[in-house]
C-alpha cells in the first residue's frame, strides 16, 4: 500500500493511538474507525453538535501523520469552492503574453495556446481535488454535510465511490493514494441514500459520566478532582433537561477551563450563573436556567435523597 506505513492493525490499536493524541474513543467508535481504515470506506458520523465528530478527523490525521484537508459545508457551496477552479486571471495573462509575442498569428499557435490555457497548471486546487492528488493518503474531512445543498451529495458520490474527479476540459483525475474520508452531519436534513450506502455509519452520542470525566481531565487540566466530578455530574444532569441545545463535550471542556480560570474550587449557584454562557449557547436556554433552577439542580446532585423526599 502506498499509504502511511503505520495503519493500526486492530481495534485496540486504533483506540490506543487515538488516546495518545488526546482523543478518547469508546470501543464502538474505535471499531468504526478501524473498519474505515481497513475497508477503505468513508466514515459517516452523525450526532449532536459538540460531541467530537470534527475532533476525530483531526486526531486521526495526527495519528497517521497525514495531511488534513477540510471542506466546511454551507448553503450554496459549489464546485469552485470545494473541488477546483480555473485560474482566469492567469489565463488572461497567458493570452496577452501570447498576443504580445505574436503567438496567435497562425492556427497551430492558437491551438497550442488554447491547450495550454486548460492545462493542470491553470487549475486552482480546492480541498476535494487536493485530496486526490497527494502522494500519501490524506484525511479528508467533509464537515457538516447537512448544511450543503442536496446536489452536492451527488457530486461527492463520484469522488467518494471512485476516488476520482472529472473535469470536463481536462479529463478524469484519479487518486493514486485514496483519501481517508470522514463526513459529519448534525442532521438538519437527510443525506442522500446513495451517498450513505457507500459509507460506514456511526452515531456519536454523549459519553457516559465515566468517560466524560476522563475526557475533561485530559482536555482541561488544572482543576481539582472534586470540581471535575461536580462539573460532569452537573452537565450530565443538564442533558436530561429539555433544552434547545444540550451542552456537548466541547462545552463541558470550555466550561471547565472557564471555571479553572476563575479559580473555582467547587460549584455554587453564583459561579454557575456567571459562566452559564459557556455551557449554553441559546438565549432561551440561559433564561430557562435561572438561578433558582441552577440552585435546585445543584442541591439535587449534592443530596439526591433530600430532594426526592421534599
Amino acid at each position: 500500500m502506498s499509504t502511511s506505513p503505520a495503519l493500526p492493525t486492530s481495534v485496540d490499536a486504533v483506540i490506543g493511538r487515538l488516546a495518545e493524541v488526546g482523543y478518547l474513543a469508546d470501543r464502538r467508535l474505535g471499531t468504526a474507525v478501524f473498519l474505515a481504515l481497513t475497508l477503505r470506506r468513508p466514515l459517516f458520523l452523525e450526532g449532536e453538535p459538540g460531541v467530537g465528530k470534527t475532533e476525530l478527523a483531526k486526531a486521526l490525521a495526527s495519528v497517521l501523520q497525514a495531511l488534513l484537508l477540510r471542506v466546511q459545508c454551507y448553503e450554496g457551496l459549489d464546485i469552485a469552492q470545494t473541488a477546483y477552479e480555473w485560474n482566469v486571471a492567469r489565463q488572461m495573462m497567458e493570452i496577452r503574453l501570447a498576443e504580445a509575442a505574436h503567438g496567435v498569428d497562425d492556427p497551430a499557435a492558437r491551438e497550442r495556446l488554447g491547450k495550454s490555457l486548460y492545462s493542470r497548471d491553470m487549475l486552482i486546487e480546492r480541498p476535494l481535488l487536493e485530496a486526490l492528488t497527494q502522494e500519501r493518503s490524506p484525511v479528508l474531512l467533509i464537515d457538516e454535510l447537512d448544511r450543503a445543498d442536496e446536489p452536492f451529495d451527488a457530486f461527492l458520490l463520484e469522488v467518494l465511490a471512485e476516488n476520482q474527479l472529472t473535469i470536463p476540459e481536462l479529463g478524469t483525475i484519479k487518486a493514486s493514494a485514496p483519501p481517508i474520508v470522514i463526513i459529519t452531519s448534525n442532521r438538519t436534513r437527510e443525506i442522500h441514500d446513495a451517498l450513505k450506502r457507500r459509507c460506514l455509519y456511526h452515531w456519536v452520542g454523549y459519553p457516559d459520566a465515566e468517560r466524560e470525566l476522563e475526557i475533561v481531565r485530559l482536555r482541561a487540566p488544572g482543576a481539582a478532582e472534586r470540581l471535575y466530578a461536580e462539573i460532569v455530574a452537573f452537565v450530565q444532569r443538564m442533558r436530561t433537561v429539555d433544552l434547545f441545545k444540550s451542552p456537548g463535550i466541547a462545552e463541558t471542556i470550555d466550561w471547565t477551563n472557564a471555571l479553572v480560570a476563575l479559580n473555582t474550587i467547587s460549584l455554587d449557584p453564583e459561579s454557575v450563573q456567571d459562566t452559564l454562557g459557556v455551557l449554553l449557547k441559546h438565549r432561551d436556554d440561559i433564561t430557562k436556567m435561572s438561578s433558582a433552577e441552577v440552585t435546585r439542580l445543584l442541591n439535587e446532585l449534592r443530596d439526591p435523597a433530600r430532594v426526592r423526599a421534599g
Binding site: T31, A32, L35, Y201, H202
Partner: peptide, 13 residues
Amino acid sequence: DVHAALSAVMLDR
C-alpha cells in the same frame, strides 16, 4: 466488536 462492525456497515440512520 461484531455488533459495532455490523451496525457500522448495515445501518444508515
